[in-house]
Design a binder for these strands. Structure first.
Length: 156
DNA sequence: TTAGGTAGTCTCG
DNA sequence: CGAGACTACCTAA
């Protein structure tokens, strides 16, 4: 595998399944709506590529990026909480809800809107009984990727 | 398995 | 703005 900026293409050379996820991660959201997700000048992209490469080698390598994903105040709080979940661990929607003084369903809503899956690790959030969802899907290829990520981190 | 409760967001009008 | 209809949910029965 090798990564080549921009991130969307970076995905294209990973293994079959992760490919589409990484494309989603940085492709449409970042490149088509820069005013809503004002990240990608060249240097941060290279940093992201470097950190992604490190993460795939070992999930202990996390992400440290100057992110400013666009979202409501509540969504910002949820995404912030997600970034505090260590690799290899999971939380349920309900646990996060209790921690934020909200409801499980509302947390699920915010996770669904996460524009930077993987970097903001929404894959570490599962339902109390069941796997939850990923990238707006509750089944299909996106879920296969969620499982792959959790396995990669040793959480499954 | 379902029924009802929940909070945040979106869509109409 | 306001009502209603969505959800990557949860708990009790």
């Amino acid at each position: 595998m090798y990564f080549d900026s921009p991130v969307g293409r970076l995905a294209a050379h990973f293994d079959g399944e992760l490919l589409c996820r990484l494309e989603f991660l940085a492709g449409p959201e970042l490149e088509q709506a820069p005013e809503r997700a004002p990240v990608p000048t060249k240097a941060p992209m290279q940093t992201l590529a470097r950190q992604l490469r490190a993460y795939f080698i070992s999930p202990a390598n996390g992400f440290d990026l100057p992110l400013q994903p666009a979202g409501t105040a509540f969504q910002q709080r949820v995404w912030q909480a997600l970034r505090r979940i260590p690799a290899g661990e999971t939380r349920t929607y309900g646990e996060l809800a209790a921690q934020l003084g909200s409801s499980a369903r509302a947390v699920g809503n915010a996770c669904r809107r996460n524009p930077l899956p993987l970097v903001v690790p929404c894959h570490r959030v599962v339902a109390a009984s069941g796997p939850g969802g990923f990238c707006g899907q509750t089944r299909g290829p996106a879920m296969a990727i969620k499982h792959w990520l959790l396995r990669h981190e040793g959480a499954a």
